[in-house]
Design a protein around this nucleic acid. Structure first.
Length: 764
DNA sequence: TCATTCACGTAC
DNA sequence: GACGTACGTGAATGAA
C-alpha cells in the first residue's frame, strides 16, 4: 500500500506513512534529521542511515528523546550520535516546515493575468534567474519576424519588441544569396552558425547556415529543410557562393563552439579558414569551470538578451530542425549568430583584462582545426577482436557468478553495490571497513582490506575487473563506430576541464586500460590500417619537470639535468641511502611521494596509497621538503597567491579562480584545504596541458608544411598518437620527437619517448 | 517512463 | 577529512 491515488499525486495519510516508513508522520522530520536527505542537501548524522534512524525513533520517538537516552544506546551508534548532535538538530530544523508565518495571500490576486513581462524579465536578470525564464507564461502567441531580403517590412516588430532582437532574414532565392554575398565580401569578420539534424556533426545532415557581419541583423540560408517546410537553396549553389567567403582567411570567422559548426560544414563540403573567435572557448578561459557555457546563458548574462530556447522549436528532440519551418528557424538561427557576433566584443575585453589574449590567440584558437582534423580522421578499431574478447569475458564472468552465488547461498545482482554490501556485511558477517554517504562501501580498497578474510572476495574482485572492462570498453566501443567511415570519431572537448587539459568523449579515448594485463588487451583493438604504423610519443614525468622549473629548486632541477631516474633519485634522497642501494619497493614509494607532492600531499593520503604507516609517510614528506626546499616554498607561495589574488595561473597565463580562498570567504576548514590542493595542482597540470597543445599545433603545421600523409589521431594528456604510412615512419619519429622536446624550453629538459606498433597493445 | 544521482573504476 | 584532472556504466532514486 503506497497511499491513496488522488487526482494529482498520491495522498499519504497516517496509515500510508506507517506502511512506507514504519513511523508516524510527525517523526519524519526526525528521520530526515538523523539520516539526512541528499536530494535536499540535508546532512543528517554521518554514519546513521534510514534503518538505524527508524529503529531508534521507534524506541525513543524523536531526536530529543534519543539524545535524552544517549547513554543507554548501543555503543556503535552512541559515538556517531554524539559526534553529530549539532548536525542532527540543525537537519531537523532544516526540514521542518514553518507553518505559522503571517502570510496574507489572496489566491485570486495571485492569478496570472496580463503582466509587464519586461519588468519581470528585468527582475529575473537582477536576481540571476536564468532557467526560470522559460517558465514565464506567455501573454500572447510568440510573434516571430521574418522577411525575405526584398521584403524588409516587419509587421510584428512594434507589436512584440521583446522577442525580436534584430532583423533576421531567410535567404531562399538565388538573387537574395547573391545580395548577401555582395555584402559579406565587404566585411572584415562574420559570425557563423549552422543548424543540423542532430548533435553528432559527423552524422547529422546540414539544415541551414546562419551568417552575420553586423549587430542587429542576420541571414539564414536554408539548405536541408523537409518538403513543405519552406524553400531550400540547393547545397551546390550555396557551396559555390558562400564557399569562397568561408575559405577566405582575410575574413575572420566567429563561432560559438566552432568545433561543431566546422565539423558540420566540413562534412557538407565547406573548408573554413580564418577562425578568429570562439565565444564558448573565450567564456571558458575567462572563468574556467563556470556552470553553463551555452550561448543562451551568455547572451542573457552579458548582453541582457533573452533568447528563445531550442525546445520551442524541436521540443525535447521529437523532431529535428529539418522538420521545423524555415520561417521559424530563420529568426532563431539569426539570433544565434547575432548574439555570437555581439558577444565577441564583450568577451574580447574580458580576455584582455585578464591578459588571456596571447593564450587565446596562440594556443586555443589554432588548436581548434587541429582537434577537428583528429576527430574527423578517427581511429580504426578491430571490432571482431572486441567481440571475441567480450564472449570470452562473458564465459569467465558466468563461471565466477556461479561460484559467488554458491558461496553467498543465493543469487543477487553482482553489479549492485547495495546488494553486495548486504551479502558481505549482513549475511556473511564481514566487518565493513568503510562507509559511503548512503551505506557500505564495497570499492577496490575495501576488497583489498577484506582479501584473505573470506574466499568470496577474490572472486568478486576478479568479477569486478572483467565486468568493468566488458561493459565500458568491449561492448561499448563497437557501437561508437561510424557506419560510414568504419572508425571511431571521439569528440575532444576544449572547454571540459578546469586546468586546461582537453577531455575526450564518445568514446573517451583517454582512459583506455593499460595498467593491468587483461585491461591492456583492449588496446590491441586499436589498429593501424594496412601499410601504416601507430606511433606514440609521450612526455616522461612532464609534471615533475614543470615543478622543477617553476619552483626553481636547484636539487630537483639538477636531478633532471643529470638525466637520472627521478623516482630512484627521490628514494635515495628521502630514505637516506645511496642511489645504488635503492630497491624496487623504495622506488615505488618514492614515486608515490613525487606524485603526491603535485596533488597536495598529506601523510594520511600517502600512507593510504602506499601502505606505509602514517608516521613513515610523514617522515618521508619531511625529508622530501628538507631535500627540495624550494618545492615547499612554491607550494606556500601558490596558496598565498590564490588567497591574495583569488586565482592561480600556468606559465602561459591560463587562470583558475578560487573565490572560496579569498579572505572574506567563510569556506570551512575542509573545503579550504581542498581548494588549496586544487590551487597547488592547477599550474602544474595546466602548464603541461598548455605545452602539449603547443606541440600539437606545431606538429600539425609541420605535417602540412612538409606535405606528409601521417595523421595525428589521439591525445592522452602527455601523449600523442599518430597513424603513419610505412614510408614516413623514420621522418615522423624524428620530427615529432624534436617538436615535443623543443616546443617550450624550460630550465630542465623535456623528454619525449617514441614507440611504434601495428596495434596500440604492442608498442615498442 | 525519463532524468538525475551515486558508487565505482578506467586513464593521466 | 584525508591526493589533482577527467568520462562512462549500472543501479537506485526521484520527478513527471
Amino acid at each position: 500500500m503506497m497511499g491513496r491515488k488522488v487526482t494529482e499525486g498520491t495522498l499519504y495519510d497516517v496509515s500510508a506513512v506507517k506502511s512506507r516508513y514504519d513511523l508516524l508522520p510527525s517523526q519524519l522530520v526526525d528521520l530526515k534529521g538523523l539520516a539526512g536527505d541528499s536530494s535536499d542537501n540535508v546532512p543528517g548524522v554521518s554514519g546513521i542511515g534510514a534503518k538505524t534512524a527508524t529503529s531508534l525513533l521507534q524506541q525513543y520517538q524523536d531526536i530529543e528523546g534519543i539524545y535524552a537516552h544517549l547513554p543507554e544506546i548501543e555503543k556503535r551508534w552512541q559515538a556517531k550520535l554524539a559526534e553529530g548532535r549539532d548536525a542532527a538538530f540543525q537537519s531537523k530544523h532544516l526540514v521542518q516546515l514553518v507553518r505559522d508565518v503571517p502570510v496574507e495571500l489572496d489566491l485570486q490576486a495571485a492569478r496570472v493575468r496580463a503582466y509587464n513581462r519586461q519588468q519581470v524579465v528585468d527582475l529575473f536578470r537582477q536576481l540571476g534567474f536564468f532557467s526560470l525564464l522559460s517558465r514565464l507564461p506567455e501573454q500572447e502567441e510568440r510573434k516571430t519576424q521574418l522577411s525575405l531580403l526584398e521584403e524588409v517590412e516587419s509587421p510584428y516588430q512594434a507589436a512584440s519588441p521583446r522577442t525580436t532582437t534584430g532583423e533576421y532574414y531567410a535567404v531562399d532565392t538565388a538573387a537574395a544569396l547573391d545580395a548577401l554575398v555582395a555584402e559579406l565580401v565587404q566585411a572584415s569578420a562574420l559570425a557563423c552558425d549552422v543548424e543540423t539534424t542532430g548533435l553528432d556533426p559527423m552524422q547529422a545532415e546540414l539544415v541551414g547556415i546562419a551568417l552575420t557581419a553586423w549587430p542587429g541583423r542576420a541571414y539564414y540560408v536554408p539548405v536541408g529543410h523537409a518538403p513543405l517546410k519552406g524553400q531550400n537553396l540547393p547545397l551546390e549553389l550555396v557551396r559555390a557562393k558562400l564557399g569562397p567567403i568561408l575559405a577566405d582567411s582575410r575574413i575572420g570567422k566567429y563561432f560559438h563552439n566552432a568545433d561543431f559548426d566546422l565539423m558540420a560544414l566540413a562534412e557538407a563540403g565547406f573548408a573554413v579558414e580564418g577562425i578568429a573567435f570562439d565565444t564558448m572557448i573565450a567564456a571558458d578561459l575567462i572563468d574556467p569551470g563556470r556552470a553553463n557555457l551555452g550561448l543562451k546563458q551568455l547572451a542573457w548574462e552579458r548582453l541582457g538578451v533573452e533568447m528563445t530556447p531550442i525546445s520551442n522549436l524541436i521540443g525535447k528532440g521529437q523532431i529535428t530542425m529539418a522538420q521545423v519551418p524555415v520561417s521559424e528557424v530563420a529568426p532563431y538561427a539569426g539570433a544565434d549568430v547575432d548574439m555570437t557576433f555581439r558577444l565577441v566584443e564583450v568577451l574580447r575585453r574580458d580576455l584582455a583584462e585578464r591578459h588571456l589574449e596571447p593564450l587565446f590567440q596562440k594556443v586555443e584558437l589554432p588548436l581548434i582545426p587541429v582537434l577537428l582534423e583528429m576527430e574527423r580522421h578517427g581511429v580504426m578499431l578491430d571490432v571482431a577482436f572486441l567481440n571475441k574478447m567480450s564472449k570470452e569475458f562473458a564465459a569467465q564472468m558466468a563461471e565466477l557468478e556461479d561460484r559467488i552465488y554458491a558461496i553467498a547461498g543465493h543469487p543477487f545482482n553482482l553489479n549492485s553495490t547495495r546488494q553486495l554490501g548486504q551479502v558481505l556485511f549482513e549475511e556473511l558477517g564481514l566487518t565493513p571497513p568503510k562507509r559511503t554517504a548512503t551505506g557500505y562501501s564495497t570499492d577496490a580498497s575495501v576488497m583489498d582490506e577484506l582479501r584473505g578474510a573470506h574466499p568470496i572476495i577474490d572472486l568478486l574482485a576478479e568479477y569486478r575487473q572483467l565486468s568493468k572492462i566488458k561493459s565500458t570498453y568491449l561492448d561499448a566501443l563497437p557501437g561508437l563506430v561510424n557506419p560510414r567511415t568504419g572508425r571511431v570519431h571521439t569528440s575532444y572537448n576544449q572547454t571540459g576541464t578546469v586546468t586546461g587539459r582537453i577531455s575526450s568523449r564518445n568514446p573517451n579515448l583517454q582512459n583506455i586500460p593499460i595498467r593491468t594485463e587483461v585491461g591492456r588487451e583492449v588496446r590491441q583493438a586499436f589498429i593501424a590500417p594496412e601499410g601504416h604504423w601507430l606511433l606514440e610519443a609521450d612526455y616522461s614525468q612532464v609534471e615533475l619537470r614543470i615543478l622543477a622549473h617553476i619552483s626553481g629548486d636547484q636539487e630537483l632541477r639538477a636531478a633532471f639535468l643529470r638525466g637520472e631516474d627521478i623516482h630512484a633519485n627521490t628514494a635515495a634522497s628521502i630514505m637516506g641511502v645511496p642511489l645504488a642501494e635503492v630497491t624496487a619497493d623504495m622506488r615505488r614509494v618514492a614515486k608515490s611521494v613525487n606524485f603526491g607532492i603535485i596533488y597536495g600531499i598529506s601523510d594520511f593520503g600517502l600512507a593510504q596509497y602506499t601502505g606505509l604507516s602514517q608516521a613513515d609517510a610523514a617522515r618521508y614528506i619531511t625529508n622530501y621538503f628538507a631535500r627540495y626546499p624550494r618545492v615547499r616554498e612554491y607550494l606556500e607561495e601558490t596558496k598565498e597567491k590564490a588567497r591574495r589574488d583569488g586565482y592561480v595561473e600556468t606559465l602561459l597565463g591560463r587562470r583558475r579562480y578560487f573565490p572560496e580562498l579569498q579572505s572574506a570567504s567563510r569556506a570551512n576548514f575542509n573545503s579550504r584545504r581542498a581548494a588549496e590542493r586544487m590551487a597547488i595542482n592547477m599550474p602544474i597540470q595546466g602548464t603541461a596541458a598548455d605545452i602539449i597543445k603547443l606541440a600539437m599545433i606545431e606538429i600539425a603545421a609541420m605535417l602540412r608544411r612538409e606535405g606528409l600523409q601521417s595523421k595525428m589521431i589521439m591525445q592522452v594528456h602527455d601523449e600523442l598518437v599518430f597513424e603513419v604510412p610505412d614510408a614516413e615512419l623514420d621522418v615522423i619519429r624524428q620530427r615529432v620527437h624534436d617538436v615535443m622536446e623543443n616546443i617550450y624550453p624550460l630550465a630542465v629538459p623535456l623528454n619525449a619517448d617514441v614507440k611504434v606498433g601495428r596495434d596500440w597493445g604492442h608498442m615498442a
